[in-house]
Design a binder for these strands. Structure first.
Lengths: 141, 141
DNA sequence: TTGGGTGCAAATCATTTGCAATTAT
DNA sequence: ATAATTGCAAATGATTTGCACCCAA
């Protein structure tokens, strides 16, 4: 069990590392992001952050998400339909399966596919800077 | 060489097949789409269509693109940055490489990757409805 | 103290839509 | 004739930004 103050300390450290000021709003948002496992969008993150720190505005959520993204702390995904969805950056790179019926997001990782991508790009005279692989799926019956 | 009237006939046939009325605006847009090899966005398509048929409005471009998409005549792509970009549907499925410096789009196709995608989804209890694979690349030096 | 950060409201950007006029069938 | 289609302008939805106040360093 992580105590509230421990969590706050962790958020504070992360913000310090990113070289930006530690504010109530940013601690709240970062906390919410850390807990989330469902790739929420900005509005959803705003709702959750407000529950912790009512003064957080949607504008600040957007501004902070951009700063955190630049700092490599969060990843922004532009899945089909609706606005951008976010997740905290984790060690291993991964791609996503999206359940077209529920909107649920499942992460997966395939070295083989990554390799093939590099190969294909190389053959065409390119090198992959980053990529996007999303499988829009339905649960098998 | 395809004559102008031949092109118009082709467009007319396509619209008839899609079960929608043949209008000057739609013929112009469809003609522009057929010629394009660069995955233009709606504004660009509007510019090009206006050169053929000045009465085409941007609203009609958007409306027609949606209808044609539903009819399977065109594909809509939501690449990173900017608005949607379109291409006429062609036989073989393919994915895209995007030159991050020039915005150029290169098409490619890999059965191996497709197979791996299906495999991954299946193992997780899903079946792929459709997917999105985009390689954001830089020309090799 | 002071420059970064914030909330608010107004501005943007891509896209959609209501409506009255036009036009394909 | 008449229902589909259109242009225009206003509406939308997601995101950004200007500005005056606030607060972390």
């Amino acid at each position: 069990m992580t105590s509230e103050s421990e969590t706050t300390e962790k958020m504070t450290a992360a913000l310090r590392k990113a070289g930006i000021r530690v504010t109530r709003q940013r601690i709240a948002l970062l906390g919410v992001l850390a807990e989330a496992t469902d790739h929420p969008d900005a509005v959803e993150l705003h709702e959750r952050a407000k529950a912790i720190e009512p003064s957080v505005s949607l504008a600040t959520v957007y501004r902070t998400l951009s700063v955190l993204e630049e700092g490599g702390v969060v990843h922004r995904h532009a899945f089909e339909g609706g606005g951008a969805r976010f997740e905290t950056t984790h060690e291993e790179h991964h791609d996503h399966i999206l359940d077209v019926d529920t909107g649920e997001v499942i992460e997966f990782q395939s070295d083989k596919i990554e390799q093939l991508q590099d190969e294909i790009a190389r053959e065409l005279g390119y090198e992959v800077v980053h990529h996007r692989l999303e499988l829009y799926c339905r649960k098998k019956t």
